[in-house]
């Protein structure tokens, strides 16, 4: 065989391999939600479960919960299920952060990334009565006295905290000097900003949507690259803050599975992503489709881990 022919044959086999692997069916798939029932990862897991089952891609699919410590307890359990090719775990940006703040022994480089599924952009809101009409006003006041402008959001080191840190950095403010008031639940953040107890608040758009539409809160910025359809908020980027952040959710598999097993799982997710059931779920739940699978997701995960480590260091949560 001549060299070009071998190359051709090899690349052909590479092209064919995934589709062959896809034909190899997955039996008794189990999805671990590394959080309590009802939370974001649990909802994602159960939506994936019904989308996979309803479209007949994999049957049966089971969901189980392993809550605790920002998902790192589940991550450790996944790591210990080495080579189990019928197990997946939902995860996301919050877990990337929790691994750092909890100094978890297992990190995401030790498991098999499969795909990024959905995400939600973060919005910065101020009370309707606030003197800050836009991001420019808010940043100007923030720069003048970083400690005086209090931001409310979720727990320390979470997505909301990271966004405020990134914004501070982009505005030339020392993230250690900012006044971030963490609350344990979305409800308390909302109450704090509705009650004028903080200057601004940060959370996923969904948590503020009803209040923004009712005119009680003003969205002064959204963390997406481009303006989002149906959301009346200018991007942070268009207002001079070079920050982009999505609170994304994805799915990973245990370490030690073979290349073809990984390809089979990815192919099942690719099919699910194209299914009508999944599209309907995204629409009713108002999740933004951020699907990214295979090596693109591998790279993305590495970049996010680095960025997260950097910002958590800047905020002063991680040494």
């Amino acid at each position: 065989m001549s060299k070009p022919l071998i190359t051709l044959a090899l690349s052909l086999s590479l092209l064919v391999a995934p589709s062959l692997a896809a034909a190899q069916s997955i039996q008794n798939l189990r999805i671990m939600a590394p959080a309590s029932p009802g939370g974001g990862w649990d909802q994602t897991s159960r939506s994936v479960q019904s989308a996979l089952q309803d479209a007949g891609i994999v049957k049966p699919v089971q969901v189980f919960n392993v809550p605790g410590a920002g998902g790192t307890i589940g991550l450790a359990q996944l790591y210990n299920s080495k080579g189990d090719s019928s197990l997946m775990m939902t995860m996301g940006l919050v877990m990337v952060g929790a691994i750092q703040t909890n100094s978890s022994k297992v990190d995401l480089s030790r498991v098999t990334p499969l795909a990024r599924l959905t995400g939600e952009y973060e919005v910065v809101v101020v009370p309707a009565s606030s003197p800050y009409k836009n991001m420019g006003d808010l940043v100007a006041a923030w720069k003048a006295d970083p400690g005086k402008v209090a931001f409310a959001g979720g727990s320390a080191g979470g997505t909301d905290h990271m966004l405020v840190g990134l914004m501070a950095k982009a505005a030339g403010i020392d993230p250690r000097k900012m006044n971030y008031v963490p609350f344990s639940g979305g409800g308390e953040t909302l109450a704090a900003v509705l009650g004028n107890q903080v200057a601004a608040a940060v959370a996923g758009y969904g948590e503020f949507e009803a209040q923004i539409k009712a005119g009680k809160l003003r969205a002064v910025g959204i963390s997406s690259a481009k303006p989002q359809a149906g959301i009346d908020a200018p991007t942070l980027k268009s207002q001079g803050l070079n920050v982009e952040l999505a609170n994304w959710r994805g799915i990973v598999a245990p370490p030690g599975i073979s290349g073809s097993q990984k390809a089979a799982l990815i192919s099942a997710l690719d099919k699910m992503h194209a299914s009508k059931g999944w599209k309907d779920t995204l629409e009713t739940r108002k999740w933004t489709d951020l699907y990214l699978s295979g090596s693109k997701f591998d790279n993305y995960l590495k970049l996010e881990a680095n960025r997260t480590a950097g910002i958590l260091k800047d905020i002063g949560l991680v040494k």
């Binding site: 909802q43 409800g187 949507e209 009803a210 209040q211 009712a214 009713t284």
Partner: peptide, 17 residues
């Protein structure tokens, strides 16, 4: 908080509207 998640499952957003 769980009831809120239930509303969201139906694509509903509890609030003033």
């Amino acid at each position: 908080a769980i009831l809120l998640a239930a509303f969201q499952q139906y694509g509903l957003q509890p609030g003033p509207l």
